[in-house]
Design a protein around this nucleic acid. Structure first.
Lengths: 238, 238
DNA sequence: CTAGGTTTCTTAGAGCCATTAAGGAAACAT
DNA sequence: ATGTTTCCTTAATGGCTCTAAGAAACCTAG
């Protein structure tokens, strides 16, 4: 009944980490389909069904490992942010965006699980580990945008000029983020988020191979648009 | 050795269609994982291995069905284009974009196979059925953009202002499309293609559920941006 | 220290799956 | 009528997820 980490719990934790590492190794080296309960168990040296003492199903294992990936991606972004702690906010935002892409292209299989894994119902529940980790990931750029909004508000469209349906959704989202951005600022945030994240998805899914061999300049151009939209003209800020 | 369709060939064709229909039914009703060789065979009333007389592997079956989806999507877009045959080109382009989204959200599972199926090496070969169908799909908007470019050129960036790497890639792509668009016009085309297609991918992959419940106004706003970038100001054209 | 319960693992097995192999029956060509 | 091709069958291999039943190790309480 002790809340501290008993020997058993430490062992269990170590095994969990070994399982995650094995799953990831299989994903990296042999692709998504190779990450089976049996293969993972074999890798960590136990036999198949033993793994069910750690995860109730294949889906749950995948969800847990995907949550790891979300956390790792978020950590990479946070690290980029903190590495430029003193810099103007514009620089920090660009650094975070570049860190996001750098992680994604360095870990395409992992990023694939992040956005293209068929999100099975249990993993869609808002309290799932996967979902929590996803929130933290989205949070990083949102936090920076909030900071920017508070210190040097960027231009926003007139809320009255937007379709009613969109206005309602933006108002709802603004409430979800505790009003840290008003609806019209949330709209700007979501718009550039969609462009950035969408571009990254297409790059990693190799949907643009028919035209590009190297997406780096395309991404940089997207960042320039972003900087222009947010009034990050490079020269001086916070 | 006759080139005309023999009785055998007609029967085979009918069976192929039945197979595709069964696969699609399974995809729609039970999701991607339910489309197995065995399940499809069961559905059409033959037993497992018989299906190997029609497709050499599960991958090949999936590739063929995905090609169907590409064709159907392209057909929907072409139909929207032809339905507005007399209209100014701006209207035709918007109609085609809306038709693309309409098909995608009406057939999310199918669209998922189009862009998020792990494209296995055999299906990446440029002569695969899947790849051919993908080209036709991409062609629709490209053709319209070419027509627009020829009749009422849209504003383009200065090629000299773009990074060298991007310039080279655009030049190469311009050549691939037989120079129908010069590199700087190709850049504009690809930019809006990325935005449109990327937005659709994120919608269908449900990556934006955290903020939106109805993406229609978001898509429409994207179309307004597109129209502005291409100088489709609604009033009069070809 | 020992007895009971818990945790962790094992093997066995059911029921899927993809794929190959071997063969039969019907359709077709000559 | 005969031989070939095509289409289908069953049998079988080896993988998968997941359940069931039980052995061993370990913790804890008396």
């Amino acid at each position: 009944m002790s809340a501290h980490t008993s020997r058993r719990q430490r062992l269990r934790q170590a095994t969990l980490e070994e399982i995650h590492a094995a799953a990831r190794k299989l994903l990296d080296e042999q692709g998504s389909a190779a990450v089976t309960i049996n293969a993972v168990a074999r890798q960590v040296g136990m036999s198949g069904p033993a793994l069910y003492h750690y995860y109730a199903s294949h889906d749950e294992l995948v969800g847990a490992v995907t949550a790891d990936f979300f956390r790792e991606l978020a950590a990479a972004m946070e690290q980029a942010r903190d590495a430029h702690a003193g810099a103007p906010i514009g620089e920090r935002m660009l650094a975070v965006c570049r860190a996001m892409r750098a992680w994604a292209i360095a870990h395409p299989a992992e990023f694939g699980w992040i956005f293209a894994s068929p999100i099975t119902p249990p993993n869609r529940r808002p309290d799932s580990v996967r979902h929590q980790a996803a929130l933290r990931f989205e949070q990083v750029l949102l936090d920076l945008t909030v900071e920017l909004w508070q210190t040097r508000p960027f231009p926003v469209p007139d809320l009255a000029g937007l379709p009613a349906s969109l206005r309602e959704q933006l108002t709802a989202y603004s409430a979800v983020i505790d009003g840290r951005l008003p609806p019209e600022a949330a709209h700007v945030f979501l718009s550039y988020w969609i462009r950035l994240y969408g571009l990254l998805c297409m790059e990693v899914l190799r949907q643009l191979d028919f035209a590009y061999t190297d997406m780096e300049p395309v991404f940089e151009e997207c960042l320039r648009d972003l900087a222009a939209a947010l009034g990050l003209d490079g020269h001086a800020a916070a």
